[in-house]
Design a protein around this nucleic acid. Sequence first.
RNA 1: GCACCCGUAGCUCAGUGGAUAGAGCGCCGCCCUCCGGAGGCGGAGGCCGCAGGUUCGAAUCCUGCCGGGUGCGCCA
Length: 576
Amino acid sequence: MPSLLDQLTAALAGAFAACGLDPALGVVRESDRPELCAFQCNGAFAAAKAARRPPKEVAEAVAAALIDSDTVQNVSVAGPGFINFDASRIAISSALAAQDNARCGVPATGAGTIIVDYGGPNPAKAMHAGHLRTTLIGDALKRIFAFAGYRALGNTHLNDLGLPMGQIISEYAARHPEWPYFDPAFTGPYPAEAPFTYAELEEIYPQAAQACKDDPARRNLARQAAVDLQEGRPGYRALWGHLMRLSKADAKRNFDSLGVSFELWRGEADVHGLIPGIGRDLKGRGLAVESEGALVVPVVEAGDTRPMPPLMYYKSDGAATYGTTDVATLCDRAQTYPDLVRAVYVADRRQALHFEQVFRTARLAGYADGVDLTFVGYGTMNGPDGRPFKTRSGGLPRFDDIVAETLERARARLAEAGLRGDEALARQIMMATLKFADLVNPPAADYVFDPERMTAFEGKTGPYVLYQAVRAGAILEKAGSAGALGPLGVDETPLALTLAAWPEAFAQALAAPSPHPVAAQAYRVAQAFSRFYGACPVLSEADPATRAARLALVARTRAQITLALSLLGIYVPKQM
RNA sequence: GCACCCGUAGCUCAGUGGAUAGAGCGCCGCCCUCCGGAGGCGGAGGCCGCAGGUUCGAAUCCUGCCGGGUGCGCCA
């Protein structure tokens, strides 16, 4: 059963055709003037131009052709040629009936594998508010693709072989030259336990980075250490192994706190072995050329309007860059997953140029033929003053601090409501708060990080949507029996129409791709339900048909909010 | 310098060719003998940065200007 909008568009297309006009002009949209009618079609303007007739005359002809339709009703022509109408009760009911299943009427038509890359923790560096964005957007996109029928795999790409690793290793070499990791004569085995804790690592890293910034000699040591590490020097590899284990555990702790998980934890080190072969291939085919001592892939295309520097494959010191590993990773994925149809990267939008270079290189070399390459960039993070966000200590707020603060506020709010001590519930509220606050915005928009707003429980927030679903659930539980779709009065119709718009909202999210349309739809349903709740008593309604019809709407509301929120990684509790 | 993104209510943001531009927060006023008030209803608040252009119709498309952000090969 097609969606309500599809049914209406089909009816209008038929009317246009009956008048000898292009049926493609029968596109229906929600009305701009809800007090006049629920839907409108503006195709008469374009049709009038093509037919060289006055728009109003065309609109009236189309309206006349709709007189016997059982899909639209209350047809009228307004102004210079707007065709206004409502959906018939039969059309609304059949659209809602088609949603009466676990998928709320959306078919799973996707086929093939999609890999979504997000999270992106940096080893030895505390995850911060920026990681919150990529984590939440990426996790939601993965769920949306999976719901659409694809095999969706989440990967968190670890930047685990770059210069920072060299900086840390050389820092420890300076501080603890006596460690066996730095003794070339040492034959092992190396200690099983790490000689440092993760907290110490987090402290050492910024100091090491700063030292390299200040001192060219230190910088060279760090570069050399990174190259040695990439080439597999045993002591460095052993030390690096400790570092990675601790870093992954910390990243997992952060992801777990939000119920986010990954199918793949493949980073730079996992494709390191592929780099020389790909380099030879690119060079052999003339795609990569020597330039200023480095090996680069020119990716300028005809028609470029902006500067397009080449992708750097090997730096002049022979080291790989993140462009190298991203190309190698893509190549590896296309081979590992023959049915890969799409690779999605969720990262700060300042990396747009980098991914453009990677995508162009892959296309030039044919490493990912048939794979749709998508970059989802999210906005720069600013503070409430509109300038780059800074904590009192000067950095970005920590990921785990944001989670802990929101969790604490959720506990406090639950205590107010007399639900003290329900820790699982507090976590659900926390997740709804953080996830919805982020996902209700389009990813590309600049991001204002306002802790007050981020953790609010009132207004356009996750807890508001949860609350409406909980109220709906309470009614359903007390009613005991199921309802049946029936007559819709003026107070029921807005909710019914909002519910009917779900297939379009999901289609929009999938096409973008973005979680935002799903979040916006969940909010619209919650808002429509809250009005309905105030205007339409259900359990105390005396007329059985009205009561059943309202109960059916309550059930559809609960189901749709539950589904939409689940695609955002948010779960609806029984009470709150 | 060149390029990309953005400029919408006091604030944070939706809305990318249709009528009278929406939401949340904040502000003012109502609504709990009634399914859960994390709520609902009403009100004030806008030359959609500015100026041209295209169009029957522009917040939306084009051009120029002003303002902000970001990027432009050896960090990841």
